[in-house]
Design a protein around this nucleic acid. Sequence first.
DNA 1: GCCGTTTTCGGCCCGACTGTTTTCAGTCG
Length: 574
Amino acid sequence: MVNDEIARLLREIAIYLEMDDVPFRPRAYEKASEGVLGSDEDMKEVYARGGLKALEQVPAVGVSIAEKIEEFLKTGRIAYHDELKKKVPVELGEFAGIEGIGPKTLKTLYQKLKVRNLADLEKAAQQGKIKKLPGFGPKSEENILQGIAFVRRSGGRFVLGQVMPEIELIRERLGVLAGVESVTVAGSVRRRKDTVGDADLLVIAKKPKPVMDYFVAMPEVVQVHAHGETKSSVKLKNGMDVDVRIVPKESYGAALNYFTGSKDHNVALRELAIKKGWKLNEYGLFAGTKRIAGKTEDEVYRKLGLRYIEPELREMTGELEAARKNALPDLIPYGSLRGDLQVQTDWTDGDASIEEMAQTAIKAGLDYIVITDHTKRLAMTHGLDAKRIKQQWAEIDRVNAALKKKGKKFTILKGTECDILKDGTMDLPDEILAQCDVVGGSVHSLFNLPEKEQTARIMRAMSNPHVDIIFHPTGRVLNKREAYAVNMPELIRHAKKTGTVLEIDAYPDRADLKAEHIRLCVEAGVKMSIDSDAHAPAHIQFLDYGVAQARRGWAGKKDIINAWPLEKMLKMLK
DNA sequence: GCCGTTTTCGGCCCGACTGTTTTCAGTCG
């Protein structure tokens, strides 16, 4: 995808323009950058399909920026960007994560101290040159050094499922403080993004000061960015920032809406308010000085002529229009899955026995699970061959019978996470696959095949009449491994044609399919499954992270086959 | 530079906190 690179250049142009205090245009470039980034079609293809006119259809891209994208596609450069960079030749990317350093500061640091990159900045700070500049002082210099140290230590984004327990702990602690009426998690955590940059907590309390004093003094706090009456911000040991805002009760809805974001969604709501002659901020919706809504989010949306929009949808991908037309999707509810279609056991690389996994699933309220151990190609997990999988079937029969005897209404199904080999054929013979209740196919090798080959490989697996589900359709591991190169729209078309299900993997750092892919599936009528990919009993609780991902992709119960009763689910499979 | 349920021209989101200042610019979300 060239989109990332184009988006980066456009964003950098915005920063350069901001350095010069150019009005409005920075925001235009920023929005265009987001428009390009949010597009699931490669700009190269958009251009090939319809030239400049097609580029102008990308959100926030107009005539001028379309020409710049065209220029990039033809020459690999944007002259305007080069020209701006010549004036202030700074490695903008290096400074991106440094708290408190914005365009104006960068420009000053370059002009006064010739700071071009992080190393220059660190040197200048260590030599005490920064605090002598007008407008700067010892504190700014110290903050810069701390910021550099932090960026060196961490990548900046966190996997939701990995930081959720800590966020929840802080929420509970604040909740029991004297005078605190409620604590709500807002921000990208509430929108259930698969990775989050920070956590935002919204508190209703009679006396803000003690809450803030407690918050900034928590044992895991390593740095206090801000400590005010209504807003405080800290960094935790794990590197994540947490913000707390305290608001009066009558503003709770407006504040929750504001702090939940996304930023673009909020801006659009405010613009809508302005059009109606009102003003929207975190304290409410105002006609002049009179508050006309704000106690609940629902009230704010209704007053603006919209239906209530679930947090997972607030990404400016058409939710406002849908809310106006009362055409929002009926999202799959949390806790509504009936089964789990990808579970590994100690027959391969899981920690627990078939029976233990079944017992945990029963406690979690599920009606069925599919045992999907790896196959022989994945030798390091002692993957199953035809002989061992038959032995496993006998064990599954035994456990099912035992459960039935105890009066449990629960079914363990026979399945496999079968490797898709390089040429798209399967790692187990068709004769075995035919006897499985559920067959999942996975790519576990040759992640770096060229896109054409990788796509063809997976499509061939889909064409196999026994392959029901493609597990890990993108293969990404958040913060660790990029998705492999596949043409997702083409895979989705082929899934429709062959009746193959695509998996939403609920394991927190997997999160295969991305939200935009899920949306494409919903639109195409391709069914999906939400699987925990559990390798231990505790992992079954991850299922709701997959539900979150599904909701972010506008999916309902009708789109997710394991939200259905067992019989209906089985009937859907090949 | 983009965009249109008021607009093809004239608008463009808003407030808290910090660090430097004696009233505010810059940054952030």
